[in-house]
Computed example of a mutant assay.
Amino acid sequence: MTRRDMGPRAQSAQNASPSERWLFGGIGAGLIALSLRQSGPSGLLLATTGALLVAGAATGQSLGAAATGVRRTEDDHIQVHKAVTIGKDPQELYAFWRNFENLPRFMDHLESVKVQDGEGQRSHWVAKAPAGTTVEWDAELTADEPGRRIAWRSLEGATVPNEGEVEFRPAPGNRGTEIHVALTYRPPGGTLGASVARLLGEDPNVQIEQDLRRLKRLLEVGHIPTTEGQSSGRKGVMKAEAKMYDNRRTS
């Protein structure tokens, strides 16, 4: 089911998995032990942080998710909601997104999406994973409202169960279209895996936000600026040009 079909899922009072409670409880205990060897403010900080982690582990609260901003549902799925305004009409944006094979053009974490039937109801996805590996899954279309909304979900057996929805809404003041993207997925390791990944720099919120910025530039400018193979001076010029462009669009 899509997010619209199911509605917001309630947050669980005890939202930490057993493995997460053990991990952060152990880290907390270690910080408390380390604080005994420190004096002054540093020792107090270590002790306070350790106590908070131990308390969270004892009560079942996911401090890892709270500390990293990961949104978790009661069934251990991660939710990402992002939006961007693009100066194109909804029908044009719908047509571009409806061809799922266009998604890797601006979604950096995707290697490929291949449509498996003539109507585009089913598709095969390949995404980048840590250490140069990939994960693959099949997906099916669950909603298709031309010019308004598209939704899809992975089929049974996917390594990373997921579902997504994108809505195309006319922007106020004839400024184009607001694209609203909602993704829900279950990463390996649940919330703990997502929390650790975010601490290591793999933040899905940042990834999707950057993807939508690339989509905006691709459709409004015609290409996505790149700095690969260019000097540091040229990189600075391109960053300045991109910033000026964004300022003009938002003014």
Rank of each mutant, 00 (worst) to 15 (best):
78 I>G: 11
84 V>Y: 04
59 T>L: 13
61 Q>N: 11
67 A>Y: 06
144 D>C: 09
48 T>M: 08
127 A>S: 10
142 T>L: 07
68 T>C: 12
126 V>K: 14
106 F>W: 12
133 T>M: 14
86 I>C: 10
94 Y>M: 06
122 R>W: 01
64 G>R: 02
129 A>L: 13
94 Y>Q: 06
52 L>W: 04
142 T>R: 07
115 V>F: 00
85 T>Q: 11
86 I>F: 05
74 E>A: 15
82 K>H: 14
97 W>Q: 11
57 A>F: 01
96 F>N: 10
96 F>G: 07
72 R>L: 15
64 G>W: 04
61 Q>M: 13
89 D>V: 08
83 A>Y: 08
65 A>C: 12
107 M>Q: 14
53 L>H: 00
116 Q>R: 10
122 R>S: 11
133 T>K: 13
64 G>P: 04
54 V>L: 08
140 E>I: 14
66 A>V: 14
99 N>H: 13
143 A>R: 02
134 T>W: 03
140 E>T: 11
69 G>M: 10
67 A>S: 09
111 E>P: 12
69 G>D: 14
51 A>L: 10
53 L>W: 00
146 P>S: 08
90 P>I: 01
48 T>R: 04
115 V>G: 01
125 W>N: 00
140 E>C: 07
83 A>V: 07
129 A>W: 13
51 A>N: 09
103 L>E: 15
110 L>V: 10
49 T>D: 04
97 W>L: 07
85 T>K: 05
100 F>D: 07
52 L>E: 08
61 Q>G: 10
67 A>N: 06
132 G>F: 11
116 Q>C: 07
126 V>D: 02
109 H>P: 05
106 F>Y: 12
113 V>T: 03
72 R>T: 14
106 F>R: 09
70 V>A: 12
50 G>L: 04
64 G>M: 05
87 G>Y: 05
48 T>S: 15
74 E>G: 14
85 T>P: 02
146 P>L: 04
98 R>N: 14
76 D>T: 06
